[in-house]
Amino acid sequence: MKDAFQRLLELDRMVHEPARLAILTVLSSAETVEFKFMERVTRLTKGNLNSHATKLEAAGYLEVLKSFRGKTPVTTFRLTAEGRAALERYWREVRAIQP
Protein backbone atom coordinates (compact mmCIF):
# COMPACT_ATOMS: atom_id res chain seq x y z
CA MET A 1 0.00 0.00 0.00
CA LYS A 2 1.32 3.39 -0.96
CA ASP A 3 2.02 5.74 1.90
CA ALA A 4 0.17 9.05 2.22
CA PHE A 5 3.09 11.14 1.02
CA GLN A 6 3.49 9.07 -2.15
CA ARG A 7 -0.23 9.44 -2.88
CA LEU A 8 0.04 13.16 -2.19
CA LEU A 9 2.74 13.45 -4.81
CA GLU A 10 0.55 11.64 -7.30
CA LEU A 11 -2.29 14.15 -7.00
CA ASP A 12 -3.25 15.88 -10.25
CA ARG A 13 -1.12 19.04 -10.15
CA MET A 14 -3.39 20.71 -12.67
CA VAL A 15 -6.24 20.54 -10.15
CA HIS A 16 -4.17 20.76 -6.95
CA GLU A 17 -2.99 24.35 -7.48
CA PRO A 18 -5.27 26.50 -5.22
CA ALA A 19 -6.28 29.07 -7.84
CA ARG A 20 -7.14 26.37 -10.35
CA LEU A 21 -8.95 24.36 -7.69
CA ALA A 22 -11.05 27.45 -6.89
CA ILE A 23 -11.83 27.97 -10.58
CA LEU A 24 -12.87 24.37 -11.04
CA THR A 25 -14.96 24.43 -7.85
CA VAL A 26 -16.85 27.53 -9.00
CA LEU A 27 -17.39 26.00 -12.44
CA SER A 28 -18.65 22.76 -10.96
CA SER A 29 -21.47 24.70 -9.25
CA ALA A 30 -22.83 26.30 -12.40
CA GLU A 31 -23.40 25.56 -16.05
CA THR A 32 -21.38 28.52 -17.35
CA VAL A 33 -19.57 31.31 -15.51
CA GLU A 34 -18.56 34.65 -16.97
CA PHE A 35 -15.00 35.92 -16.57
CA LYS A 36 -16.17 38.95 -14.56
CA PHE A 37 -17.91 36.84 -11.94
CA MET A 38 -15.03 34.37 -11.77
CA GLU A 39 -12.59 37.21 -11.19
CA ARG A 40 -14.74 38.57 -8.39
CA VAL A 41 -15.52 35.31 -6.63
CA THR A 42 -12.01 33.84 -6.74
CA ARG A 43 -10.32 37.22 -6.09
CA LEU A 44 -7.78 36.50 -8.80
CA THR A 45 -6.34 39.25 -10.98
CA LYS A 46 -7.28 39.32 -14.66
CA GLY A 47 -3.83 38.12 -15.76
CA ASN A 48 -3.70 35.37 -13.19
CA LEU A 49 -7.17 34.12 -14.01
CA ASN A 50 -6.42 34.22 -17.71
CA SER A 51 -3.19 32.28 -17.22
CA HIS A 52 -4.83 29.57 -15.10
CA ALA A 53 -7.80 29.34 -17.46
CA THR A 54 -5.43 28.86 -20.38
CA LYS A 55 -3.67 26.03 -18.56
CA LEU A 56 -6.97 24.37 -17.68
CA GLU A 57 -8.19 24.78 -21.24
CA ALA A 58 -5.00 23.21 -22.56
CA ALA A 59 -5.55 20.28 -20.20
CA GLY A 60 -9.07 19.93 -21.57
CA TYR A 61 -10.65 20.68 -18.19
CA LEU A 62 -12.52 23.79 -19.23
CA GLU A 63 -13.93 25.37 -22.31
CA VAL A 64 -13.52 29.08 -23.03
CA LEU A 65 -16.45 30.60 -24.92
CA LYS A 66 -16.12 34.03 -26.53
CA SER A 67 -19.20 36.04 -27.39
CA PHE A 68 -20.57 39.58 -27.47
CA ARG A 69 -23.18 41.22 -25.28
CA GLY A 70 -24.18 44.18 -27.39
CA LYS A 71 -20.79 45.52 -28.38
CA THR A 72 -18.97 44.23 -25.31
CA PRO A 73 -16.89 41.08 -25.69
CA VAL A 74 -17.75 38.48 -23.07
CA THR A 75 -15.61 35.53 -22.02
CA THR A 76 -17.42 32.61 -20.44
CA PHE A 77 -16.05 29.42 -18.93
CA ARG A 78 -17.64 26.00 -18.94
CA LEU A 79 -16.40 22.88 -17.17
CA THR A 80 -15.90 19.96 -19.53
CA ALA A 81 -16.90 16.40 -18.66
CA GLU A 82 -13.19 15.63 -18.37
CA GLY A 83 -12.73 18.54 -15.96
CA ARG A 84 -15.64 17.41 -13.80
CA ALA A 85 -14.24 13.88 -13.71
CA ALA A 86 -10.78 15.21 -12.80
CA LEU A 87 -12.18 17.30 -9.96
CA GLU A 88 -14.20 14.39 -8.60
CA ARG A 89 -11.17 12.10 -8.86
CA TYR A 90 -9.02 14.70 -7.09
CA TRP A 91 -11.40 14.96 -4.13
CA ARG A 92 -11.66 11.18 -3.93
CA GLU A 93 -7.88 10.92 -3.75
CA VAL A 94 -7.58 13.73 -1.19
CA ARG A 95 -10.20 12.09 1.02
CA ALA A 96 -8.37 8.79 0.75
CA ILE A 97 -5.14 10.41 1.95
CA GLN A 98 -6.67 12.19 4.91
CA PRO A 99 -6.50 10.15 8.13
Binding site: P18, A19, L21, A22, T25, V26, S28, S29, A30, E31, V33, F37, V41, T42, R43, L44, T45, G47, N48
Partner: peptide, 22 residues
Protein backbone atom coordinates in the same frame (compact mmCIF):
# COMPACT_ATOMS: atom_id res chain seq x y z
CA UNK B 1 -0.73 38.05 -7.24
CA UNK B 2 -3.86 38.37 -5.28
CA UNK B 3 -4.09 34.60 -5.19
CA UNK B 4 -0.73 34.24 -3.52
CA UNK B 5 -1.36 36.86 -0.84
CA UNK B 6 -5.03 36.31 -0.18
CA UNK B 7 -6.05 33.64 2.30
CA UNK B 8 -7.15 30.39 0.71
CA UNK B 9 -10.85 30.70 -0.14
CA UNK B 10 -13.27 28.35 1.50
CA UNK B 11 -14.16 26.12 -1.42
CA UNK B 12 -17.54 25.12 -0.06
CA UNK B 13 -18.43 28.77 0.40
CA UNK B 14 -17.28 29.54 -3.15
CA UNK B 15 -19.53 26.81 -4.43
CA UNK B 16 -22.52 28.02 -2.38
CA UNK B 17 -21.95 31.65 -3.44
CA UNK B 18 -21.89 30.64 -7.10
CA UNK B 19 -25.08 28.62 -6.77
CA UNK B 20 -26.87 31.42 -4.89
CA UNK B 21 -25.73 34.06 -7.36
CA UNK B 22 -26.76 31.95 -10.35
Amino acid sequence: SASASAPAPDLERLSALTRDYA
